[in-house]
Design a protein around this nucleic acid. Sequence first.
DNA 1: CGCCCTGTTGACTTACGTCAAAACTAGTGG
DNA 2: CCACTAGTTTTGACGTAAGTCAACAGGGCG
Lengths: 260, 260
Amino acid sequence: MYSPHSRLGWNRRARGGDELKTENFLRGRRGIQLAVPERQALELGLSEPRLAPARQTLIRRGENVSQSTLLVAGYVGRYMEDREGERQLVALHLPGDFVDLHAFPLQHLDHDVVAISDVAVATISHAALTAITAELPHLTRMLWFSTLLDAAMHREWIFRLGRLDGPGRVAHLMCETALRLAAIGIGDGREFPLPINQGDIAAACGLTNVHVSRVLKSLRDTNLLAVQGNQVTLLDPAALRRIGEFDPQYLYLHDGVSTP
Amino acid sequence: MYSPHSRLGWNRRARGGDELKTENFLRGRRGIQLAVPERQALELGLSEPRLAPARQTLIRRGENVSQSTLLVAGYVGRYMEDREGERQLVALHLPGDFVDLHAFPLQHLDHDVVAISDVAVATISHAALTAITAELPHLTRMLWFSTLLDAAMHREWIFRLGRLDGPGRVAHLMCETALRLAAIGIGDGREFPLPINQGDIAAACGLTNVHVSRVLKSLRDTNLLAVQGNQVTLLDPAALRRIGEFDPQYLYLHDGVSTP
DNA sequence: CGCCCTGTTGACTTACGTCAAAACTAGTGG
DNA sequence: CCACTAGTTTTGACGTAAGTCAACAGGGCG
């Protein structure tokens, strides 16, 4: 039987009742803290988290949306499709990310939002966000900031696709994901859980799954990277950063973050 | 002698004295209009435009910035460099674009900003922007909106690099540029001035200039696209949109815009 | 057990990169 | 007006990374 609750460890956490939906929001980034009333305004506006199974499409391209989605647990991807239905991943979201905050000003989405793992998501209405922008300028700037982080990652992905070869693209993706996850307390920056398959990596890196298989094999054979099941291990982080030309500046993590 | 004034037609326009620096800001997008006090707040905060020659680097990656730049006339590119100094263009900016508004929340840039043609740029201090976000929520949302348009274009560029071949990438770039320029009254959506060389196209499309030359030749030979000197002509817009898998929805142009 | 999904491997094709030379263009100065 | 230069663009020959097609191997699960 399908039971996302247990897979997410959700029962345990939700049962406490005092768990914050926004606990990971902007966590570890630039040391920015939200003031208590700001966090309260967000928490009050957010719905109770709902659960969705892996592979479910949460929002479809073009839909008119009147609310935005905060990812509380699990992984979400944003995809664009070409004419043949081949998917290009344009963003990978981790717990604490606002997945489609940009839909608040833009009002509709130019891509699909898909659950990669089982997920828990909370929503906030655009009316509530309008109220926040009217009353809480600093929080508004922080929300703005979080969409700009997405844009900075978009740029890095453009670079990845435009200037790196297969192994470089995969290395870059894994370096980025390792650091982002470490910033929210998942993994140690070297080893982390990532429930995606080679097709997802291919969709992220602009490669075919056959080629991703070969690239992963070569990274494995040279003791740089291990992807087994849902566990990713950066065996040689320095080498991966070199071939992925990875410089984490664009992630705006605060200074103290571990970068093994 | 270097004279950007005349090349930009700047003398004529500046001489009037009543010309608006923000005249193209968000023009043609979603039919959004700024209220008079909003436009005034922007205009008051903006410096007198200054001129810079083509190829000048306006802002360097990593610099701490305390002001943001509005492009008044000319073309500007945002570039990231790989280890060998090869450039990847991550954004192309047209008159009316805020080139680095994202530096207001982010505080530094993860890429270089370079003049592609001779340009005129005005700046606004981040202090002035902070005041705007404190007092003018609607204008703040519009500024936010404009950075989200950039992000939407970033996503489309990711798609372009990840899923299209050489001719498709060039076609997509030219379709996008044609529409964006038409929206601010430059060209008719079929033919427009674009003072870039094949190296710039290569930097935008993740190709080498040699290959761009071949791609342009093939598009020329099949009567799809002509790039001669600084003039670009979409000879067969429908075909170009097809091979570039171009759907202008993401540009959020208002309905009435011409799409030949 | 048998199915489906994901990953692996091999043989072959192709788009694009690399290197290098030549043609063309525009600007400069005699 | 022509010669000189520097920056583009074009063309050719050749190499290579990645795509395609297809068969097969493993694993998890009903």
